[in-house]
Design a protein around this nucleic acid. Structure first.
Ligand SMILES: [Mn+2]
Ligand SMILES: [Mn+2]
Ligand SMILES: [Mn+2]
Ligand SMILES: [Mn+2]
Lengths: 228, 228
DNA sequence: AGTTAATATAAGGGTATCCTAACTATTGGA
DNA sequence: TCCAATAGTTAGGATACCCTTATATTAACT
């Protein structure tokens, strides 16, 4: 019935990107997609139409795009492969974060189910990628976690870094060099005027992080009275 | 100086295929390339021109094609990646031969040097792929081995299977099921009339192999007097 | 209600790979 | 020497993705 369509790398990158941008089922502006993929809005719009015709997403003009159930399933398949490869490249091959991200972005497009599942098993069925993002299961849909961007914390608040929102890869080495990793304990010491750079205590070390960067660091809040 | 050109999968498959077909620097007919790649001769011819313009091969009309030094280097890079991935998929992920070949044919196109070298190290710098084909080194060119196709042996001759010439992948499971693997001891028992099927003793078991299949099984001859 | 900024489309191209059909050139025998 | 089989080229298309430069639309703010 459903004709098996071999997804091209380009299509997969659109789906993955949309899934990454969309938070809580929000509509994703086509402009954002184009930006993330470094592609003209005309081209992005064209592809959005194609994907809509395939039933993978719905486009509400002047509002944005939302993945259908089928589209989300596909996108999570890609995220699953991406993150599994990241685990492998990091833990087994010992490659640095930046490279890991780029390589995984290529490998994610050439991993059929049998390969992906074998890799999953080989890695011991990990739940999170090295950046702390959850790995979608082979079946079923990803369940959400309660997270707060570091940029939303006030002075004095504390938390634990849960994950780094998947980005262009450049940011990863930057953060790694500042001890910003899944599991790190963080406390806001000071916020500069005009919602400016945050001075934080990250795993005991003092660091300064711009607001934009802080938006990509997702935190699990820890209440003060629970402090060890 | 030399502009770095990101090779497309298609180009790489042409180069790899030519390298696989050509024995001892023979000219490879464009027709053969087209056949192996399941592509029209017109398209193959077109691509051959493009690759010639890039200095990767030389085409002698009505004779065939030969890789240049640069072309051979590229081709061996692809073979290297293919065979390293085969090792990984077989030994670490435990996937069956047929799948291993197909997956490796995809992975071979998305492995940059850093990844390939890390994989090589992780595998312990293997010298041969699971089919017994030599893995080209990171630098330098592959040295040849003295091999004889099983189809060239006469009745009574003995040898050891060195490797299975890389083919479409279908053949691999067929041979594996008949104990035809690198290292297997083989003896020709009988050759049917008209250069027909061979009855052989393969690792002690009696098997019958057609001539065409036998051409893909490369042997190292063992003299009778050296028999253990 | 009217204007502007964001979005979407239309029009016209470009490249890389593939195809079929028809035609030409070469080779290797007979 | 001449011809048939083999190899190569020309012509005309198709598809998937990409681009730039207009030209509509719509949303949203004054
Ligand atoms: Mn990718
Ligand atoms: Mn990740
Ligand atoms: Mn391949
Ligand atoms: Mn092999």
């Amino acid at each position: 019935m459903t004709e098996l369509h071999k997804f091209a790398e380009s299509e997969e990158m659109y789906l993955k990107t949309i899934a990454e941008i969309s938070r809580h089922g929000n509509l994703v502006p086509v402009t954002n997609i184009a930006e993330r993929l470094s592609i003209s809005t005309v081209s992005a719009s064209e592809m959005v139409h194609r994907l809509q015709d395939r039933g993978l997403l719905e486009h509400t003009p002047y509002k944005g795009v939302r993945l259908t159930t089928e589209g989300r399933k596909r996108a999570e398949g890609i995220l699953r492969r991406h993150r599994l490869w990241e685990c492998f490249l990091t833990e087994h091959l010992g490659l640095p974060w930046k490279q890991v991200h780029d390589f995984a972005c290529q490998l994610e497009h050439v991993s059929e189910d049998a390969l992906t599942d074998a890799l999953d098993k080989h890695l011991g069925f990990p739940s999170f990628c090295p950046h702390g993002n959850p790995i979608p299961p082979a079946q079923g849909v990803l369940e959400g976690r309660e997270t707060t961007p570091l940029s939303d914390l006030d002075v004095g608040q504390e938390g634990v870094v849960l994950c780094i929102r998947e980005e262009d890869g450049e940011i990863l080495d930057y953060l790694d060099a500042r001890a910003v990793r899944p599991g790190s304990r963080v406390r806001i010491e000071e916020i500069a005027p005009y919602d400016g750079p945050r001075s934080v205590l990250m795993d005991g070390e003092k660091q300064v992080l711009g607001r934009e960067v802080a938006e990509h660091i997702l935190i699990e809040l820890v209440h003060d009275n629970e402090t060890e």
